Amino acid sequence: MKAVIIMGSKSDLDYCRKIAENLSEFGISSILRVASAHKTPQKVLEIIKEYEKDDVVFVTVAGRSNALSGFVDANTVRPVIASPPYSDRFAGMDILSSIRMPSGVAPLLVMEAENTALAVAKIAALTDEKVRERVKNYQDRKKGKIYKADEELG
């Protein structure tokens, strides 16, 4: 399994690299691409066609008016995770364009690069025992931090 991360513009590259770094911790490779549903819809379709024959999850990273996530989801049978980077513009309310989708269009919405990678890993874990074990270890480490913090206070 691999993740194809499509960003609406290169301004989202740092955020996408964080997703890719977190994916590598689960042993999942990723491919970074740039295409806009508004400006280059044909390019988006070409990317989908290039990769959807493989075992992939598409991750879409677009802010403002996030047509990218819905557009990708409407054109593939593969899972799509919308991961819009947080923006202080509009008090973060541009996220609403990632939430409301028309019927028959269902990208998942996950905030934060680390959580996006975890969601991809959990999808991969359905069929990949190694990834499943990495997800379990990740969850155990997170739980351990809470227990340790509590012990430090007591």
Rank of each mutant, 00 (worst) to 15 (best):
E52Y: 02
A149S: 09
H38T: 01
D94Y: 08
P79L: 05
S87Y: 04
D54N: 15
L96C: 08
A74N: 05
E133D: 15
N66Q: 07
A121W: 08
A117Y: 10
R132I: 00
S87W: 04
R78Y: 05
S97V: 05
G92F: 09
V61T: 00
D54E: 15
I48V: 12
R64N: 06
T116M: 10
L153I: 09
A37V: 10
G104E: 14
L153M: 11
A125L: 07
E52A: 03
D150A: 15
E152R: 10
V61I: 07
L109W: 07
S97E: 04
K148L: 15
K136Q: 11
K49P: 00
T76H: 07
A124F: 12
D54S: 14
A117D: 09
R89K: 09
N137Y: 07
S83Q: 05
T127W: 14
M101L: 10
A119I: 02
K39R: 15
K122D: 05
P85R: 09
I99V: 15
K53R: 13
S65P: 00
R132Y: 12
E152N: 05
R100V: 15
A121Q: 09
S98V: 12
H38D: 03
A91F: 12
R100A: 13
I47G: 00
N115C: 06
P79V: 06
I99H: 06
V61C: 03
S83K: 04
V59F: 14
K39E: 11
H38W: 03
A62H: 02
G104P: 10
T60A: 08
A106G: 02
T127E: 15
S69E: 05
K49L: 02
D55V: 08
E52G: 05
L68Y: 04
K142T: 09
E152P: 00
A91M: 08
Q139G: 01
I47L: 09
D140W: 11
V77I: 03
K136R: 15
A82E: 01
S97R: 03
L126P: 00
N75Y: 05
V59P: 14
P79C: 03
R100L: 13
S69F: 07
A121Y: 09
K143G: 02
R78G: 00
S103P: 10
G154C: 07
D55W: 05
Y51A: 06
V72N: 00
E46H: 11
R134M: 08
T60K: 03
T40F: 08
G92Y: 09
S87I: 02
S36C: 01
V131M: 10
K49V: 02
N66C: 11
I48C: 02
Y138M: 03
V72E: 00
K142H: 07
P84V: 01
D140L: 13
V44Q: 00
P107Y: 03
H38A: 01
K130V: 12
V59W: 14
L96M: 10
E114F: 04
V44E: 00
E46W: 06
P107C: 03
S36K: 01
G63Q: 04
P85D: 08
Q139T: 13
L96P: 06
L68S: 04
I123P: 11
L126S: 10
A106Q: 09
